[in-house]
Design a protein around this nucleic acid. Structure first.
Lengths: 340, 340
DNA sequence: CTGAAAGCGCTTACAG
DNA sequence: CTGAAAGCGCTTACAG
């Protein structure tokens, strides 16, 4: 049990000053070659590695990125983390991840905790509750302290900062248009409650596609699901009562539930009912039938978000040019068996 | 853009010493009430929060746990993280997550990086490559430095430390036994390559169940899949040539592929072919038919691992009693449509 | 009751 | 060429 070795110990052992050791290890030409090599050899032998915490304190930067997401057991979010991790590591950053569990309080707590010196900047996606409340003071505060924030996916217009999103409205439009192109006339929308920003935008896209094609908009064909566990009944009713021939679901969990319900009441997917889902995840790929989806590349989102954050962190701190950008990641339709 | 306020600034502003401020904020009775309240009010007004990094340096502990896992886009691992996060947060710890991508080098790099002061202890699951090489020097080193390590799921006997696992062999045994109980006679095993510790154990359980029931063990019925993308052909052959009536798959991805392949060649699951998978994830729940699985609770594993680590961290450092424990998390069979 | 000093582990401008 | 000093932000034993 040898504790990690420090500069001080090396200095003592070699009978030189701490400064000399430090400089030798950083290969400063200030130090005579003989001493330098001696110190380096000794340090190498004892596996000396500078203490990150001490460096952070000294440099006033930690080289770590804080990530706050609602939920990790979610293919999309894991994917984004992967993307962030990639470019973070390439640039010598590590990441520290906190989960808000879609709770406002946890989001605030986590941000405060990380903001106290543990990280250099945030990458985050808002919790449902935060979006519902519209209370973003914790984020403003962090930004005011000079800590950059990049938001992705679930963002808000109320905060000025870098963002990376997909064009939810347009992507939804395209998806619905593809259904119309295939001759579907009565298209339902299964979505989330309105305060989730992306849910709202996808609804807009859905509506616009219908209207642009002269299809009457029918409120009854929109179902807003609050809780996935109780949705089957609502969905069953929709399918039985409304004689629809297609559904656009705002995520793949809804989509797979729709398919299963349809099967139960004797509807064939895709013949009787076409199904498209937002978010290309693992379920869509392995469901039977496989599900046509709008793919939003989490990896790309993560890459981009990390790039934006690191760029800001390393840009000479000329804090004045706060020209925040919003990057839009491209989506595309992945055609599978649930449409034809 | 007001940078975060420090003790020093408060001291200056209030014209007292830094010590006085520090003590006041920690509510030390050493300080006169008047001063104490004045300082506290001021600090509150400016949202003073102590700098974590400084505290870490001072206390020589960071109150953060390092997690190293092979892959985050994996329901089981995300689930474990969730479990770790829960009890970590309850105990005032945060977590920092690094991914090894199943690569030995990344695992080593990440561990070295975190070991340099950033965290107090590790919770980890070995990368495939590490298991393949059998090289664990990076872990030994960390432990020798006095940093506790808890391993979960993919562990090794070559390292002495706390571990939390499931009884892979027994769970596999049970699963196969349940197939036998349902009258299945010719049961195949679809597994991973042998160096993945859990793969090996599950194979052992499978074999034992067969032998215990007087069913001849047939090497040809065991398929080892290296790469999920090319497995369909191998699986197809198994199903067509071997006339099996049940399959035990070592994970749900294999299981769902088996089911899809079976469907293609006209086999009905579960009538012609029963399927059981290890690891209860999201696919099993939403596949058609839904898949009977051995559930290993990632949440519980994470909870337990975090508890063990924190306990060790906070146990008075009486480092001598290194009585390492291995906790076994219970599994159970979740019966669904793929068996009957 | 208040403050100066030492220290956590490091770096770097400044003396010598 | 080497080292003492100051400092990052904090805490705490010790003086006064």
């Amino acid at each position: 049990m040898k504790r990690k070795i420090t500069l001080k110990q090396i200095a003592k052992e070699l009978d030189v000053s701490i400064s000399t050791v430090s400089k030798s290890l950083r290969n400063s030409l200030e130090i005579g070659e003989e001493t330098r090599l001696k110190v380096q050899a000794f340090a190498k032998f004892y596996h000396y590695k500078p203490n990150n915490i001490a460096l952070s304190l000294k440099n006033r930067k930690t080289k770590t990125i804080g990530i706050i997401i609602p939920e990790i057991v979610h293919h999309f979010f894991s994917t984004v983390i992967n993307g962030i991790e990639q470019v973070a590591n390439e640039n010598g950053y590590s990441v520290i991840i906190c989960l808000s569990d879609d709770s406002f309080d946890k989001e605030v707590l986590n941000m405060e905790m990380l903001a106290n010196g543990s990280i250099d900047g945030f990458i985050m996606s808002l919790s449902k509750e935060t979006q519902f409340r519209g209370d973003f003071h914790h984020i403003t505060e962090v930004i005011n302290q000079g800590m950059p924030v990049v938001m992705f996916d679930r963002v808000t217009n109320d905060i000025l900062c870098d963002k990376v999103i997909i064009d939810d409205k347009y992507a939804a439009y395209e998806a619905v248009q593809s259904l119309i192109d295939k001759g579907r006339k009565k298209i339902a929308l299964v979505t989330t409650v309105d305060y989730v920003s992306v849910g709202k935008l996808r609804t807009d896209g859905y509506t616009k596609a219908l209207l642009d094609n002269g299809i009457p908009f029918n409120e009854d064909l929109i179902i807003k699901i609050e809780d996935i566990d109780t949705c089957e009944i609502t969905i069953g009713k929709l399918l039985e009562d409304k004689a629809i021939d297609a559904v656009f679901a705002v995520n793949e969990l809804f989509a797979v539930t729709i398919i299963k319900t349809a099967n139960k009441i004797g509807l064939n997917v895709p013949n009787d009912l076409a199904v498209i889902a937002f978010t290309d995840g693992i379920i869509s790929k392995y469901s039977t039938p496989t599900i046509t989806t709008v793919s939003q590349s989490g990896i790309k989102m993560g890459n981009k978000a990390a790039k934006m954050l690191i760029e800001r962190l390393e840009s000479e701190e000329d804090e004045e040019d706060e020209n925040y950008k919003t990057e839009v990641i491209e989506t595309h339709l992945i055609e599978r068996e649930s449409t034809n």
